[in-house]
Design a protein around this nucleic acid. Structure first.
Lengths: 330, 330
DNA sequence: TTGTAAGCGTTATCAC
DNA sequence: GTGATAACGCTTACAA
């Protein structure tokens, strides 16, 4: 592949001039500049990224490490990040940690090695990763969940109030034994949604019981098992609050298997407003998270941090909206 | 950030020895090696990627450029690619072209500049991109759609027979005016699905008419408009074949707005088996594409090409499965 | 087995 | 306004 010397030779100038011309520096003769551009075009010259990054000690690449590429919530975040990053001249690379601490660790390692300008991360809760990032100077923004040590810019959702509102809504609709599938223990979003759910039950003066809660991974598979175990006990719950849209798929499948109709037999309320939620019969009542905005805001925070490295980390908390549909109507 | 000289100084050896120790070369004294490892650990040393890539003239990174991160079909491909790449020691970076030729062009440019080891691409049909890639030596594999010039390894689906089978299924179920939303004109997958649909109508001796076809982007929005225009004409179609799962969302929304029930009023059959298709009432009949396998196969093809650069490009074609559910039962 | 030093392709500093 | 040249941090002959 052609390098800067090839271009210089063809244009009959020095490599310094090629570099200046190609980077649009003011101080270069228009005629030479034209010759350089023509030569570069002819050779299909593309500057060597690694060499440039090495010399400049910086890259125009951001890394976004999310826990599930197949979850629309995270892909919406990715779009938000990408639009803002792109507008500022940064490329975005996406990495999928699968909610596994080892994979997350590995991708953070790669990002640090490649000296990306900054990292956006929805942390699995791996303390190693947090420590790793803290020891290095690469700016980090946590999205959706905070880093264990909490010493970074962070964009969160007000999970606890949102879950409380959701539980209260179920209570108002006349459901009396409300179950909850909050997601995995130890993940803050899950723990907060569980706490909010309990807040709601308390406020509605409904009995709270551990037998109404099942922890599982944020996956359809785990939710299927949890839902089956929850709904086949005696007495069964008459409603269920589900922590995300992927789990909601598993829950709804289980309801269908058990011959239970959402709303009439069992109230169903899930976090995340996926595109298919309105297609169901009855349509799904959801807690809609501003995923795109969370991504955009996180990217902006990172760009700000790159522009002015000093200063204390900030935490932005966005609000979710309860969108009432048919699955919470008896 | 600590560099190799810092480690060398702390361990009391030369940079060469540090490099050899850290890269597990055999010829290094165990005691020195231990000292190096300890020093590297203490300093939180992480080799500078750009410097290493520059020196070695190679990277262990693959780029996957897909046209829609929010489409489960493409994220499933991404998982297939990632698993295979990861097992072979490569990192995967994901880029989202949004089905826009300019963005695709830009990401290919970035990939070439960064000297990634190889590129996987579901092309938008941009001839520029194809030419760009051809002029450089970076290996490329096309997934789901071929490159315009067709001179690369390629993994495809047998779209035309699959669409024909789908159309025939609708005919067998007694639908007589079968419409089609094949996706954008000029995109091969869309054009092939349209051709297969016409094959099916011909085989079933049903009338084919351009008034039964609406072209649009592979998006819910476009499909909504197309479906409305298709279904409100006189006489309306009694079934519709939809080219992907994202469009299917738009079509199903439109049916609901028009008060039409899938299956009974209008037969609905869509490409892609998204997780939510079984939750609908009636559940959606689909053409299930082996997306994960397509990704895994494409990654393998790329790895093979990296291992042995010579040889003619191959094209692998996978088969889709018709999964019959309720939306094609009257 | 270890160290010295060249070189990967850029950009930036310095003379001219 | 342009050209030589040093430097970025690493790996790898080659020498010791």
């Amino acid at each position: 592949m052609a390098n800067i010397s090839d271009v210089a030779a063809l244009a009959g100038v020095s490599t310094a001039t090629v570099s200046r011309a190609l980077n649009g520096k003011a101080t270069v003769d228009p005629e030479l500049s034209a010759r350089v551009l023509a030569a570069a075009e002819e050779l299909g010259y593309r500057p060597n990224g690694p060499a440039r990054n090495l010399r400049k000690q910086e890259t125009a690449v951001l890394a976004l490490i999310i826990s599930d590429v197949e979850n629309p919530f995270f892909t919406a975040i990715a779009r938000g990040v990408e639009d803002v990053a792109h507008a500022a001249g940064y490329s975005l690379v996406l990495c999928n940690s699968d909610d596994e601490q080892a994979k997350e660790r590995e991708y953070v390692d790669v990002a640090l090695q490649e000296r990306v300008a900054g990292v956006l991360l929805s942390p699995t809760g791996n303390a190693d990763t947090a420590e790793l990032l803290e020891r290095h100077t690469t700016p980090v923004v946590a999205v959706d969940r905070p880093l264990p040590n909490g010493r970074s810019d962070t964009v969160l959702l007000n999970n606890r109030p949102a879950a409380k509102e959701a539980a209260l809504h179920l209570a108002e609709r006349g459901y009396r034994r409300i179950g909850c599938l909050p997601g995995p223990s130890g993940v803050l979003t899950a723990d907060e949604r569980l706490a909010g759910y309990r807040d709601g039950l308390r406020a509605a003066k409904l009995p709270s019981s551990t037998s109404l809660v099942r922890r599982s991974r944020f996956k359809a598979e785990g939710a299927r098992d949890s839902a089956r175990s929850l709904l086949t006990q005696e007495p069964p719950p008459d409603a269920v609050l589900v922590a995300n849209n992927v789990m909601a798929v598993g829950v709804l499948e289980t309801l269908a298997e058990l011959g239970l109709r959402p709303g009439r037999d069992v109230g169903v309320l899930a976090f995340d407003d996926a595109p298919w939620t309105t297609l169901l019969d009855p349509p799904l009542t959801v807690v809609s998270q501003p995923a795109y905005d969370m991504g955009a805001m996180a990217a902006q925070l990172l760009l700000d941090r790159l522009a002015s490295p000093g200063g204390a980390p900030t935490t932005q908390t966005l609000s979710a909206d309860l969108v009432v549909r048919g699955s919470t109507t008896r």
